[in-house]
Nucleic acid binder design. Structure first.
Length: 276
DNA sequence: ACTCGTGTTAGCTG
DNA sequence: TCAGCTAACACGAG
């Protein structure tokens, strides 16, 4: 589920509903999700503070925290990553729950309390929960951003060309490399390549600067559309990403394969690989 | 019962 | 340094 647009929805949820509330307690008992911390470490670091800002680069979120007892020195940053299927749930003081980060599809599995992997209990009686069936999400203190490239929404055309065109890797694998461009996941990569009419398996050294520019525009358009419609699964081509699917533009058969280790779909007519 | 696939990432290997 | 593979997790489908 969560690619950049879903994570942005979760970030806004935290920014709108969780900031400024005093943290009374923290459940950090899931040592896999909270690795490398030990149980109680996140609680000890956060209790008595409040979240003061919710930030994001690509699919990584982090919250700034207040000092203790009005101290001017801020607390640690709280890093949150939704992994493959994490969602954020914020419960207000009166018990109203709001959700962000998951698919907005009606068929989506309902949230189960046993999937709660990390919980902040606020002094007002509400809470913030990371719900994550697969436990591939992650919560950690002071995560750092050194391993991430520029955010997919903010990368400039010149930066994009430099980051994308170097080397010999398949262009889809390069798009998925968070250290180059942060925020593109499997579905968004397929959607952007389809919009740009580029073969996912094309080696980046076979692309021209104009291809990179077209891909960046396609990526930005796919991002804008996903943000407006409520998630990457609303992409124009995503519904055709199934056996027997046909290209929504030209009607040709969609093909399926593995690129960069991920399940990949492309239009057999418009996205054929050029020999390198 | 077993195997495969899934919207992510980190770490290992050649 | 770069590119490709695998494991970490849980669970539904075939």
């Amino acid at each position: 589920m969560p690619e950049l647009p879903e994570v942005e929805t979760a970030r806004r949820l935290i920014a709108d509903r969780a900031l400024g509330r005093r943290i009374a307690d923290v459940d950090d008992a899931d040592t896999f999700v909270c690795r490398p911390h030990s149980p109680g470490q996140l609680r000890d670091a956060l209790a008595g503070r409040a979240l003061t800002a919710a930030c994001r680069r690509g699919k990584t979120m982090w919250c700034e925290t207040s000092g203790l007892d009005g101290s001017a020195a801020p607390g640690p940053e709280l890093g949150i990553h939704l992994g493959m299927g994490g969602r954020i749930i914020v419960v207000s003081a009166d018990g109203q729950a709001a959700e962000g980060g998951g698919p907005r599809r009606r068929a989506a599995r309902p949230h189960q309390p046993r999937w709660d992997r990390f919980t902040i209990e606020f002094a007002d009686g509400g809470r913030l929960v990371l719900s994550d069936q697969r436990r591939l999400g992650r919560v950690r203190l002071d995560p750092g951003l050194g391993h991430l490239g520029p955010d997919a929404e903010q990368v400039t055309a010149a930066q994009f060309r430099d980051l994308i065109l170097k080397g010999t890797i398949a262009v889809k694998a390069r798009l998925l490399d968070q250290s180059k461009i942060a925020g593109v996941g499997n579905l968004l990569a397929d959607e952007a390549l389809w919009r740009a009419r580029l073969a996912p398996s094309a080696r980046v050294n076979t692309l021209r600067a104009a291809d990179a520019d077209r891909l960046r525009r396609a990526l930005r358009a796919a991002l804008r559309s996903a943000m407006a419609k409520g998630g990457v699964h609303t992409g124009d081509m995503i519904a055709a990403r199934r056996p027997g699917g046909t290209c929504p533009r030209c009607g040709a058969e969609m093909r399926h394969g593995t690129v960069g280790g991920r399940s990949t779909w492309w239009c057999s007519r418009e996205q054929e690989a050029r020999p390198g």
